[in-house]
Simulated assay, not measured.
Amino acid sequence: MSLAGEERKAFILEQLNAEGQVKTLELVKHLGVSSETIRRYLEELESDNRLKRVYGGAIKISLDNEEPTYMKREVLYMEEKRGIGKAAAELVEDYDVIFIDDGTTPMQMIHYLMNKKNLTVLTISIATLHLLMEYKNKELFSGDIYFIGGKVNAAQSRVSGLVAERMLAHFNADKAFVSVDGIVLNGCINSFDAERGQLVSRMIEQSKQTIVMTDSSKIGQSHLYRTAEWRQINMVICEVPMPRGWQQTLEEHEVGWIVAE
């Protein structure tokens, strides 16, 4: 490796430590090298256990495989999450009953629901509840809000557990908007936390349609709890096209893929 190459790899690690993520296209522009060169750097850094490659770039490696806190998740991939949220809101119709889970991506769709009439929103997210209340108090949101109560996870700003599952059992929805910790071809969507994954599974079972909202960093990631199979999913919204080799499986299960702008 040349001195210039080592300096570029050091820059990649500096960006990773500062932002928690790096994107191949942005590194190409900043460092003035080809995408193949950037991919090689990322492969070498991954082999040294300095980062974890994901679709379109890399993320900071997690040695304990624990879910990042809500505060950390909130600032990652914000531009992509806003686009995904906007695309998801376009699928909501007047008078819909919708589940919104605790992910920082589904929360972004709240900003784009202001012109929808007479919605009913059910959520397990404390942060989403606060945002909905803010819009409701400003008379910018038309509809009802139901908070699914249960055991509070303060670090993740959500509820989960048996109490939440029992309360959730009383509701049916037109659409469930769910986030993921990982999405893979064999096994579909998964979660770090089994309690949270179980609750989202219940949301999916009690909804007519399920829309998965994920940024590309989750593609190829596999974690503890398998939340749902492809046969249970109707749509995926992501900022990039579906990965190569996924089309046949998704077509077999009639799963659509929307590329958010």
Score class of each variant (00 low, 15 high):
Gln221Thr: 14
Ala173Glu: 04
Gln209Lys: 11
Met235Trp: 01
Arg196Asn: 11
Met213Pro: 01
Glu229Ser: 06
Thr227Lys: 02
Ser216Val: 11
Ser222Arg: 07
Ile183Pro: 03
Gly182Thr: 00
Thr210Asn: 05
Glu195Gln: 08
Thr227Ile: 09
Ile189Arg: 00
Tyr225Pro: 05
Arg226Ile: 03
Glu195Ile: 00
Val178Gly: 02
Arg226Ser: 12
Ala194Gln: 14
Ser191Gln: 05
Ala228Ser: 05
Leu224Pro: 06
Ala176Tyr: 02
Ala194Asn: 12
Ala173Lys: 04
Asn190Tyr: 01
Ile219Gln: 03
Ile189Phe: 03
Trp230Tyr: 04
Asp181Ile: 14
Ala228Trp: 00
Ser201Met: 15
Ser179Lys: 01
Asn190Ala: 04
Lys208Phe: 09
Leu224Ala: 13
Ser207Lys: 13
Tyr225Asn: 06
Gln209Ser: 09
Tyr225Trp: 10
Glu195Ala: 02
Asp181Ala: 13
Tyr225Glu: 13
Ser179Thr: 10
Arg196Glu: 11
Gly220His: 06
Lys208Asp: 13
Asn190Arg: 00
Arg226Phe: 03
Gln209Pro: 07
Asp174Leu: 10
Glu195Val: 00
Phe171Asn: 10
Asp193Gln: 07
Lys218Thr: 06
Asn234Lys: 11
Gln206Asn: 08
Gln198Gly: 13
Ala173Cys: 06
Arg202Ser: 12
Ser201Gln: 15
Gly187Trp: 03
Arg196Lys: 06
Leu224Asp: 11
Asp215Asn: 15
Ser201Ala: 10
Gly187Gln: 04
Met213Val: 13
Glu205Thr: 13
Ile183Glu: 00
Asp181His: 13
Lys208Gln: 15
Gly182Trp: 02
Asn190Ser: 09
His170Lys: 15
Ile204Ser: 06
Gly187Lys: 04
Tyr225Gly: 02
Glu205Asn: 13
Ala228Asn: 03
Arg202Asn: 08
Ala194Tyr: 12
Asn190Glu: 01
Ala173Asn: 05
Asp215Arg: 02
Lys208His: 10
Phe171Ala: 08
Ser222Pro: 02
Asp193Glu: 09
Met203Pro: 08
Asn172Trp: 15
Ser201Tyr: 09
His170Ser: 12
Glu195Pro: 01
Arg196Thr: 07
Arg231Phe: 15
Gly187Ala: 10
Gly187Pro: 06
Leu224Ser: 13
Cys188Tyr: 00
Gln198His: 11
Gln232Glu: 15
Asp215Thr: 12
Ser191Tyr: 02
Asn190Gln: 05
Arg196Gln: 12
Thr227Arg: 02
Phe177Trp: 03
Gln209Met: 15
Ile219Leu: 12
Ser222Gln: 09
Glu205Gln: 15
Leu224Phe: 09
Met203Glu: 08
Asp193Ser: 05
Arg226His: 09
Asp181Cys: 11
Thr210Phe: 07
Met203Val: 07
Ser179Val: 10
Met235His: 03
His170Arg: 13
Val200Gln: 07
Phe171Arg: 08
Gln209Cys: 12
Val178Gln: 00
Asn186Ala: 14
Lys208Cys: 08
Met235Cys: 14
Ala194Leu: 05
Ile219Asp: 04
Gln232Trp: 05
Ile204Gly: 04
Asn190Ile: 02
Arg226Asn: 11
Gly197Tyr: 11
Phe192Asn: 04
Arg202Thr: 09
Ser222Cys: 10
Met203Thr: 06
Gln221Ser: 13
Asn172His: 13
Ser179Leu: 08
Gly220Gln: 06
Ala176Val: 08
Ile211Trp: 05
Leu224Met: 11
